Simulated assay, not measured.
Amino acid sequence: MKTILIVDDEPRTREGVRKTLEAWSSGQYRIETAASGVEALAWLQNNEVNLLITDVRMPEIGGLELVEKLNEMPHPPVVIVISGHPEFDYAQKALQFGVVEYLLKPLDKTKLVRAVELALKRKDDIYRIERMEKLIDPKLMETVQQEKVYSTQVREALQYLDEHLHESISMRDIADQLHMNASYFSVLFKEQTGLTYSEYVTRRRVQRAKELLVSTRLSIAEIAEQVGYQTAKYFVKVFRALENVSPGQYRQNVMTTEERIQ
């Protein structure tokens, strides 16, 4: 269950925000409160939060100081700042810290809920980006970034490979498909992508396997077949050589991370 933490030293505001969000969430979110920045930091030592709603002016640790400390965390929450004063300097600094919204007291319930929905969507977007970064092979990413300088033959080869990754495709098969000499195609492919044909195919198959491992419940054998390996045993060997873990361990690690972040 995703968690929202409300931090405000004014009991009336703190409880008002809590009640509004509890009514809005209908039990879908865990709503927690803290009466100060110090209390919030103590709570965060043993808990994770997706969205932080904090007042700017509080004793000891103010809202922006709290946000600055949270930005040092591996997975900081998204933040909504609330204030009783329309101070430009506070608002400007809040934006520099990546705060999603700056709301003025007295809070409008509709604007508060809208800001919370926007913030949680932003958190989901950040999570998806982080997850994709873990999936993407950096060497394959380099080939994508360089695609604009590829020759027509290499672009066609990459597209054909993507569409037939589940098949056993030799370099000669691709060269024949493109009506090219296999030796010339080999040199051209390495020159433009920075990878040999064999290296590219292996990395692309493992990349596809990683996507299937986190997005489906297919068995390791089924995934091996879908990415072009005739035996699960050989697929596991290739996967481990590139990722330093087995496909099963990779799936478990990503799922565990997903539960922790969410």
Rank of each mutant, 00 (worst) to 15 (best):
V49F: 03
I31S: 14
L195G: 04
E10R: 11
I6L: 08
L120T: 01
A232Y: 01
T257A: 13
N47G: 01
Q252N: 11
R260E: 10
Q207E: 15
E60C: 03
G84R: 09
L104G: 02
R12E: 06
L44W: 06
R203N: 09
Q145W: 04
F239I: 04
K105D: 05
H164S: 05
L41Y: 02
L165G: 08
T13P: 00
L95M: 14
E117I: 09
I136G: 05
Q28P: 02
Q159A: 11
Y160D: 09
P106H: 07
I6Q: 04
H85F: 12
R172I: 09
E191P: 01
S83H: 04
V149L: 11
E101Q: 08
V17R: 08
E32F: 06
D108M: 01
T216Q: 11
M180K: 10
A119E: 09
R205N: 03
E39S: 12
D89M: 02
A209W: 05
L188M: 14
Y127Q: 11
Q192H: 02
R128F: 07
V78N: 05
A175T: 10
F88E: 14
Q45K: 13
M171W: 03
G98R: 08
L213W: 04
L195F: 05
H85A: 11
R155T: 10
V254E: 13
V38A: 14
I82T: 15
T110V: 03
E130P: 03
Q145R: 10
M73T: 07
T231F: 05
R217K: 05
T231G: 06
I82W: 10
L188P: 04
H179S: 14
K69I: 07
I31H: 14
Y160R: 13
S186L: 02
V81N: 02
G27R: 11
V116T: 14
T54P: 07
R122V: 09
M171E: 13
K210R: 15
T13C: 08
V78F: 00
V113F: 03
E32M: 12
A241Y: 06
Q207G: 13
H166G: 02
N244C: 07
E211H: 11
